[in-house]
Design a binder for these strands. Sequence first.
DNA 1: CACCTAAGTTCACTTTCATATACTCAGCCC
DNA 2: GGGCTGAGTATATGAAAGTGAACTTAGGTG
Lengths: 182, 182
Amino acid sequence: MKVNLGEVRITPMDVWTEVHQGTGMDPRLDRDMSNCSIARTLEVVGEKWTILILREVWYGSSRFSDFERVLGCPRNLLAARLRMLVDEGILATETYKEPGSRSRPKYVITPKGMDLVPAVMGLLQWGDRYRADPEGPAVLTRHRECGAHVEVQVRCERGHAVEAEGIESVPGPAFRMRPAES
Amino acid sequence: MKVNLGEVRITPMDVWTEVHQGTGMDPRLDRDMSNCSIARTLEVVGEKWTILILREVWYGSSRFSDFERVLGCPRNLLAARLRMLVDEGILATETYKEPGSRSRPKYVITPKGMDLVPAVMGLLQWGDRYRADPEGPAVLTRHRECGAHVEVQVRCERGHAVEAEGIESVPGPAFRMRPAES
DNA sequence: CACCTAAGTTCACTTTCATATACTCAGCCC
DNA sequence: GGGCTGAGTATATGAAAGTGAACTTAGGTG
């Protein structure tokens, strides 16, 4: 490995390609993963109950009491998670009014929340394969228009189906190295 | 079923709820979701650090010290999570030997672990869209064979691309209702 | 006007997580 | 055989999250 200390400025990308020559990520390098999109997403949906609340929204629940009953989750946590999901723009509040009752808030999903569907479908799919009861899954997902079973797939922009082994991870525009410790 | 096409705006939520009336997914019914595949998967990968450890395995790390350095995770937690992932068959241990050192364990991913890739790609994709730095993502994923950007897609068995709204969830073979409380 | 209900809040308690430090263990090197 | 190294284990302490029960709130009903 040659390193030019003169006029040439060495970018993280240079170091990257130099060290691992275009294939993987070298574990010896001190990558800064604080801006990793996986970690950032988990900051929002990584707490207990959050994804299960979203599941219930997808399955049709919208009221505080519905979530509480089906999830068995403590009210204070449920309130905190719902507030957070609304703050993040994943859910939105509307009002509903049962005849003979005052109007109360309900929770509906936003487009930003809908964009979490592929991730959660991935969890569902893995659980269906490896952790289902002997008789099969508790819930089936199918295409509303044609009735066929729905799944998540990894594909490239050109439409090729991609195996997990065929995914190459390379540094993006916000890639950073951690400063060397002194 | 009454549909008011005049004043009332029909949302996807409304359609969703209508469709699930009486099919078991009605929010008023006491579904038993203890065998939900999403919840079951989260029992395995839902703890803090677990998915980030898997991310590092995909990026090429395999040694205890690599995980510790790049994640900044406490050693005792790291040891506990690695043990759990091995117990679950998501990682496996092998040995490596640096010249001049004794042989030590390393962690490699199994096919069962590889099957979590679509779920984690979904998290990555959402983070790239909604939580990336202004200049873009830290890591890009591309198809090793053609170089094109890789993404997760929801598709049905017949090959149709499916919108999140086009997914219908229906009770499967292991669907259960919760026994009525007495 | 007292009571009911959904949607919370408050509080006491327990478990888990984070952080830090110290310690072990097994082989290789000198 | 004493030191070095990677991979842990052991322990302590504080912070955060989870749990369960009691309490509050606001409007509608009898």
